[in-house]
Computed example of a mutant assay.
Amino acid sequence: MSLRAAVLGHPISHSKSPALHMAAYAKLGADIGYTAIDVTEESLPAFMESVRAEPGWRGLSVTMPLKKAMVREVDEVRGVAQVLGVINTVVFESEGESGRRVGYNTDVAGIVNALRNAGAVEAPAAVVLGGGGTAAAAVAALQELGARSVAVYVRDTGRAAEARAAASGLAMEITVRPISEAVAALAGADVVISTLPPRAADGMAAELEALGTATDGVLLDVAYDPWPSRIAAAWESRGGTVVAGLEMLLYQAVEQVRYFTGRDDAASAEVIDVMCDAVGAPRRVY
């Protein structure tokens, strides 16, 4: 019987996850099919109920807007996802009515590996743009890199609940400021993680270009289409290193493939190479 996995979200037709996963399974010789399924937050409970009775499911990748809602649909949450309250991975540990669905967050590992492979310093002075679910994962990733505090910049300081909750659960110092004040903070940061939607940081990019000061920091822009984003181009023009969200997507997918196949060699250089080729991501040391 062919096994199944999928990425869920809305909209989902743009997702590169099927290309990443299918390349990995082909290299590993794993008989797992992987598709993209459009699921809204409203339709998620019915979808999760339907798959419980379908044989062959190994796992689900979860993207916006379902990462928080999925917490209510699993039987157990493990690892850092317990603190964050945000899930991007569901593993089916067994099938049928008695089967367990376990939630994880591999976004944290994806961010950490993407930043480390780009040369980010340990214990960085860190800035996060945005305050939602991906920002929560960014806060956890920055703590793993040794940061003791993080400055979060959002459009509405009253709407950074997920980032605040993550920092509280991790006992990490956080400051939340209006995004209109972000550019001055970017200039002195070792690591910047933008979790904003595509083009949302274009205005900041123009201000950053006008500063004219150099940086040797690393910017991870989780948006990867279009690429380079304007803020990435502005950062690179100042001498900084830029990392596309495509690399974060790649490294979090590596962890998902490990969960779905049960194989540690999913993180081998050979598998990562074919995943890079599948989506045009640059090869870095993993």
Results as ranks from 00 to 15, higher is better:
residue 68 K to R: 14
residue 85 G to S: 15
residue 144 E to A: 12
residue 60 L to H: 02
residue 136 A to K: 03
residue 282 P to K: 12
residue 115 L to Y: 07
residue 46 A to K: 10
residue 108 V to D: 02
residue 101 R to D: 00
residue 161 A to F: 06
residue 144 E to G: 02
residue 263 R to Q: 14
residue 145 L to E: 03
residue 178 P to H: 15
residue 254 V to W: 03
residue 217 G to H: 00
residue 80 V to G: 11
residue 106 T to N: 05
residue 169 G to R: 11
residue 158 G to R: 04
residue 192 V to D: 02
residue 11 P to E: 06
residue 247 E to V: 14
residue 117 N to Y: 02
residue 197 P to W: 07
residue 196 L to P: 03
residue 113 N to T: 15
residue 222 V to K: 05
residue 28 L to G: 09
residue 63 T to W: 04
residue 10 H to L: 11
residue 103 G to A: 06
residue 71 V to L: 01
residue 139 V to E: 12
residue 105 N to F: 04
residue 221 D to N: 15
residue 229 S to C: 04
residue 272 I to E: 08
residue 11 P to Y: 07
residue 99 G to S: 08
residue 223 A to F: 13
residue 183 V to G: 04
residue 209 E to M: 15
residue 278 A to W: 11
residue 252 Q to C: 11
residue 176 V to N: 07
residue 102 V to M: 04
residue 170 L to F: 09
residue 177 R to W: 03
residue 257 V to C: 04
residue 129 L to Q: 10
residue 240 G to D: 10
residue 284 R to Y: 04
residue 225 D to N: 15
residue 128 V to A: 14
residue 163 A to L: 10
residue 145 L to M: 09
residue 60 L to M: 09
residue 73 E to Q: 14
residue 251 Y to E: 06
residue 57 W to E: 13
residue 212 G to S: 01
residue 145 L to D: 06
residue 164 R to L: 07
residue 86 V to M: 12
residue 142 L to I: 12
residue 244 A to W: 10
residue 138 A to G: 10
residue 254 V to E: 01
residue 200 A to F: 04
residue 59 G to L: 03
residue 98 S to C: 08
residue 237 S to Y: 03
residue 91 V to Y: 02
residue 224 Y to N: 08
residue 12 I to L: 05
residue 24 A to K: 05
residue 41 E to S: 14
residue 89 T to C: 13
residue 170 L to D: 03
residue 4 R to C: 01
residue 167 A to N: 10
residue 265 D to L: 01
residue 268 S to G: 13
residue 138 A to C: 05
residue 191 V to S: 09
residue 243 V to W: 01
residue 204 M to T: 03
residue 202 D to A: 11
residue 259 Y to R: 14
residue 108 V to P: 04
residue 33 G to C: 08
residue 216 D to I: 06
residue 96 G to T: 15
residue 120 A to I: 00
residue 228 P to L: 04
residue 31 D to W: 07
residue 125 A to W: 00
residue 71 V to A: 14
residue 57 W to V: 03
residue 171 A to M: 13
residue 31 D to Y: 09
residue 87 I to W: 12
residue 168 S to H: 13
residue 263 R to W: 13
residue 93 E to R: 15
residue 191 V to N: 06
residue 135 A to P: 01
residue 41 E to Q: 15
residue 175 T to Y: 02
residue 41 E to K: 13
residue 21 H to W: 04
residue 228 P to S: 02
residue 254 V to H: 03
residue 259 Y to W: 02
residue 27 K to A: 15
residue 121 V to C: 15
residue 143 Q to A: 14
residue 276 C to E: 12
residue 2 S to M: 11
residue 6 A to P: 10
residue 234 A to E: 07
residue 61 S to G: 08
residue 231 I to G: 07
residue 190 D to W: 05
residue 88 N to K: 05
residue 257 V to N: 00
residue 221 D to F: 08
residue 24 A to Q: 00
residue 261 T to D: 12
residue 202 D to W: 06
residue 128 V to K: 02
residue 22 M to I: 10
residue 258 R to Y: 09
residue 130 G to I: 00
residue 29 G to S: 00
residue 206 A to K: 06
residue 121 V to P: 07
residue 9 G to K: 06
residue 26 A to Q: 12
residue 202 D to I: 08
residue 152 V to G: 05
residue 120 A to D: 05
residue 130 G to H: 03
residue 141 A to K: 06
residue 13 S to G: 01
residue 156 D to T: 10
residue 39 V to E: 00
residue 149 S to V: 10
residue 145 L to T: 07
residue 197 P to H: 06
residue 9 G to C: 00
residue 76 E to Q: 11
